Amino acid sequence: MFTHLPHLNQVRGFEAAARLGSFKAAGEELNLSPTAISHQIANLEDKLGILLFERRTRSVILTREGSKLAQAAHQALQQLSTALEEISNTKSVLRITTTTSFASMWLVPNLASFQEKYPEIQIEIKTGEDLIDINRDRRIDLAIRYGKYDEKNAHMIKLVTEHFGAYATEDYLNRHKDLKVGTLIETQWKNKNLPSITWRNWLQAFRPDMPIPKISCFDQEHHAIQAALAGQGVVLVSSVLAKMAIQQGWLKPLDGNCSMPGFTYYLLVSPFSGELRKVIAFTEWLVEELSENT
């Protein structure tokens, strides 16, 4: 019945190249060389007797026939992937991308409850500040992002909106009753699209007459928190990321009433993974966990 169909590897190579717009990117996703992808697609074109791509100097563009096949190939591979995921007895791998700070200060410390509930799902976390396009990269199932939440964007799932507070160890606060002689710790965003949340903003709002003391800056929030835990100063940081340190009594608030509005953590689901059980389970757990614990 299906003897006329091309080899599955050719279809996978073609679908990846069509989605990513690059033989090189398709090869990286499938762990093949760009030459191997090119050969797969050339063999597929020979079998079909049509051109699927227009080859240009630095890019490839789908032909009309190629666009039609790309849509069908994507749907077929998605259905096959979903079915295999559902019937397989092997551990399912859920791949998540998020910021380094959220992974280290919230996600990893809270992940045990998910793994206890779903031991058959293995979690792989990719961290970094560079945004991965999950609409094109099939290697990622979920992206936990941070920034301004757009309630009109149907693809965003709101998780939690933070506030920024000032925290330090109890010992540091006892030794520095006067904030003017202490050290203030803050984060300077790598993402320049985010408005800065700084000690200068905090002092202007809550201590406008106080001269600005020494300020120590880090480019990662978890580094700033670690500096505060080491007794190096008072950190201005997200309530979400400081939650565990506060619960454990490692950090104390400088003034609980002096907090500033922050940003929102939200979830993006890959269009290739949205119907998978592992994605639905993790999404439900994450939304519930953040609503209860923050």
Rank of each mutant, 00 (worst) to 15 (best):
Y118H: 15
A83P: 10
E129W: 01
E170N: 13
T82F: 10
D141L: 03
Q188T: 15
R136M: 12
K91V: 10
S92P: 02
T100L: 07
A154E: 12
M156V: 02
L179S: 04
T169H: 00
T161P: 06
K152Q: 13
E120A: 08
T169M: 04
M156L: 02
G165P: 05
M105D: 15
I144T: 04
D141R: 00
D133F: 05
S196V: 09
E116W: 09
W106H: 11
P119S: 12
M105C: 14
E85Y: 00
N174K: 14
H155C: 11
G128Y: 07
V108S: 11
V108E: 15
R175T: 15
W189L: 06
P109S: 13
T99R: 00
L107R: 01
A83Q: 13
R138Y: 07
E186Q: 15
H155I: 04
N193F: 08
Y146E: 12
S104Q: 14
E116L: 14
N193C: 00
A103P: 03
L159P: 02
N89W: 13
S196Y: 06
E124H: 03
E116M: 12
Q115V: 06
D178R: 12
Y167C: 00
P109F: 08
F114L: 10
Y149F: 13
E186G: 04
L179I: 15
K190T: 12
Y167H: 01
L111P: 07
H155M: 13
E124L: 06
N110F: 01
T98F: 02
L94S: 03
E151S: 05
E170M: 08
G128C: 04
S81R: 14
T97S: 09
A154I: 08
K126W: 09
P195K: 13
I140Q: 01
N153G: 08
M156D: 09
